[in-house]
């Protein structure tokens, strides 16, 4: 019955704050108690980088907000403090005693987010909305569902944007093989199990070591927790023979290096050679949202420009395999329906 949904962006200015505002309004209209936090910092009037005005986060009365004490506004009344630290101070849980604005400064890590979500749930928030930051995704492993905001600020070319969205969606469709969450590279086969001291596949040299161990035990299964670098993954793949299961930890870990197209292509190549691919854990990718506007630097200052919203939307829809919407042009229905569906399912 209780749920946490993250709203992340593939880049800045892809409109995640707008999506968050829409979801807040819909939840309020549906009478669903909401908790709100962020994995970064949001809610200022102007963007840190571009100096452009940003949409404000309006919170209805009764909303629970987890934000740094230093970011609290008068309409928020503190109920409890936490030990979760941010770069602007310790996170507190507060309730909007009247409608107002929120400046969100929340837990930057998955561990901190897990704790904050649990506390918001305990306070009665049925739906916790988690604001993403700067294209960062990895802490969202603490959420149950994810909405990804993308658009012209990420890529102006519709085909490229669509290919990338498709690649991201592919990762979320990987089969889930629940495992023990062991945090090291590991191979197992008829010859036994070998664990390497590395928490991720970040170095081609580590890939070589792993391949050697795989050969030594006649590996049937390789566990690859954490993120993978494209180079190391290619290096590993080139030294392996099937049939073999490659088990990754989480789709968001695969996305962390910020190269979804490259990672998806590398995985497709491995699948093409008969390897079975899966993840130990995952979360539901609920929808993509599209923002056709993007900032450009003109003279000394940034200005907004508008891309072709229709073309962007059509292209991403064709590639994504999940609902896609421009919440400004089309309203909140598509995205909100996905959140409701997940709420019903939980």
């Amino acid at each position: 019955m209780k749920l946490a949904v993250g709203v992340a962006g593939t880049a800045k200015n892809t409109g995640k704050t707008t999506v968050l505002r829409v979801l807040l309004a819909e939840a309020a209209a549906a009478g669903i108690p909401v908790g709100l936090t962020s994995i970064g910092y949001d809610g200022e009037d102007l963007d840190h980088v571009t100096g452009l005005p940003k949409p404000r986060i309006a919170v209805p009365r009764g909303t629970w907000v987890a934000t740094a004490q230093t970011a609290l506004r008068p309409e928020l009344e503190v109920a409890e403090s936490t030990a979760v630290e941010t770069a602007v101070g310790r996170v507190a849980l507060a309730r909007a005693v009247r409608p107002g604005r929120a400046v969100l400064a929340g837990p930057a890590t998955a561990g901190g987010l897990t704790e904050v979500i649990a506390r918001l749930h305990r306070r009665g928030a049925r739906l916790v909305l988690v604001d993403g930051a700067f294209g960062r995704l990895a802490p969202m492993t603490a959420a149950d569902g994810l909405i990804i905001a993308t658009g012209a600020a990420r890529h102006r070319e519709p085909k490229l944007l669509a290919r990338e969205a498709g690649a991201i969606a592919t990762l979320f469709r990987l089969p889930r093989w629940p495992g023990d969450g062991h945090p090291r590279l590991r191979v197992s086969g008829p010859g036994g199990e070998r664990v390497l001291p590395y928490p991720a596949l970040l170095d081609p040299a580590w890939a070589d070591e792993l391949a050697a161990e795989a050969a030594a035990v006649g590996a049937r299964e390789i566990h690859l927790p954490g993120s993978v670098s494209r180079e190391a993954l290619g290096r590993l793949g080139s030294q392996l023979d099937g049939p073999l299961k490659l088990v990754f930890s989480h789709p968001l870990h695969l996305l962390a290096p910020g190269e979804p197209l490259a990672v998806a292509e590398a995985l497709a190549a491995l699948a093409g050679r008969g390897f079975e691919l899966g993840v130990e854990r995952g979360l539901s990718l609920l929808a993509f949202t599209i923002n056709p506007r993007y900032p450009v630097r003109a003279g000394g200052a940034y200005q907004w420009r508008a891309g072709d919203g229709g073309r962007l939307l059509a292209a991403v829809r064709q590639a994504a395999g999940v609902p896609v919407s421009d919440v400004v042009a089309e309203g909140p229905a598509v995205v909100w329906a996905e959140v409701q569906r997940l709420l019903g399912r939980q």
Binding site: P199, A200, P225
Partner: peptide, 24 residues
């Protein structure tokens, strides 16, 4: 020093640290 695309690069570092399990 912050400049073009630098915030994105810094965010990527943070994200890879998280995905690698180091952030705890």
């Amino acid at each position: 020093t912050l400049g073009y695309n630098v915030p994105e690069e810094l965010a990527r570092l943070v994200d890879v640290m998280e995905a690698t399990g180091l952030r705890s």
